[in-house]
């Protein structure tokens, strides 16, 4: 029973860490219809920015400062999103998808190069703040508090995004532009501005995810690629552009990966890919389908 509980717990951790990265990715696809390969790169920069904030405060930090560092990373990367929209994404809105893919992949390489220049090639490691560096016991089951924190952050990010998209003025405007940008323009909406807000928000989510997850894994210029495949998988299985779909897909794929590893440990890491293929064969449009997008 403890083993099953831990397997569920680990699956949730996998899912919520991936959802934190995937949230911005699916948002930008839902509105701009751009598959942003550079998202992993900006997630990585967010982690490094938060690391630098942490170093500036002496290396060890309380929980509140850890959160401030993550928010600072979100703001910094959101600002980069503003620049990226002005310089690159705005020019890609009326070109074929292949150009967007190549341009954003090139941007990912620029991110990797920038990280190498600024922070170097060495592996770095950040331990969780002391308040999150312990273990909670549920009967015989032990759960690291930092892992609980990641799961909570994923759930809170989902709730926050749902409220933002469904219950705020800007969220409604974003949905209108996503549904029909031509009609939105005719109605007098500043579509370009709404696109810009979406990009900045999406990049800020990538930076925030980087900051929150900086103590989850090693930091290196390879980090951008580590979560990217998982995040794309979650976005595709969830239904391109659907935040709700991405959340459900993250949990589903996390559980499949976790239980797969538990029952068939001889084939590590394969279950995510198998599940991705099978789900897309059964439901190619993803769990939430196109009509549910953002």
């Amino acid at each position: 029973m403890v083993d099953i509980g831990l397997t569920v717990f680990n699956g949730l951790a996998w899912g919520m860490a991936t959802f934190l990265v995937a949230a911005g990715l699916t948002l930008i696809f839902g509105i701009l219809h751009i598959l942003n390969f550079a998202h992993g790169g900006f997630f990585m920069i967010g982690a490094y920015v938060a690391y630098s904030v942490m170093l500036a405060f002496g290396g060890t930090m309380p929980l509140w400062l850890y959160l401030v560092a993550a928010i600072a990373a979100g703001i910094a990367v959101g600002g980069m999103g503003w620049g990226v929209d002005k310089l690159i994404l705005r020019r890609l809105r009326h070109v074929e998808d292949a150009y967007s893919l190549i341009a954003t992949y090139a941007l990912l390489l620029v991110c990797v190069g920038a990280v190498q220049l600024v922070w170097g090639l060495n592996y770095l490691s950040v331990m969780p703040p002391p308040a999150l560096n312990s273990v909670v016991f549920l009967g015989d089951m032990f759960m690291p508090t930092y892992t609980i924190f990641i799961i909570a952050c994923g759930i809170l990010a989902f709730i926050g995004l749902e409220i933002f998209i469904s219950h705020t003025e800007m969220g409604r405007l974003i949905r209108v532009v996503a549904a029909d940008p031509w009609m939105a323009k005719l109605l007098g909406l500043n579509v370009r501005r709404i696109y810009l807000v979406t990009v900045v928000f999406s990049f800020a989510l990538a930076g925030l995810a980087g900051g929150l997850l900086m103590a989850n894994q090693s930091l290196s210029p390879e980090l951008g690629g580590i979560f990217l495949l998982q995040a794309f998988g979650v976005v595709i299985v969830g239904g391109m552009g659907s935040i709700r779909g991405a959340f459900i897909a993250a949990i589903l794929l996390g559980m499949i990966e976790s239980f797969g590893t538990y029952f068939v440990p001889q084939y590590p890491g394969i279950f995510f890919l198998v599940a991705l293929a099978v789900i897309l064969l059964i439901k190619p449009e993803g769990i939430m389908g196109k009509e549910q997008t953002a």
């Binding site: 397997t7 680990n10 996998w14 989850n216 979560f227």
Partner: peptide, 14 residues
């Protein structure tokens, strides 16, 4: 056995 280049090793640690 653990996969190469993963961001999450919790299942294997368990």
């Amino acid at each position: 056995l653990v996969p190469y280049g993963s961001g999450d090793y919790r299942n294997y640690i368990t």
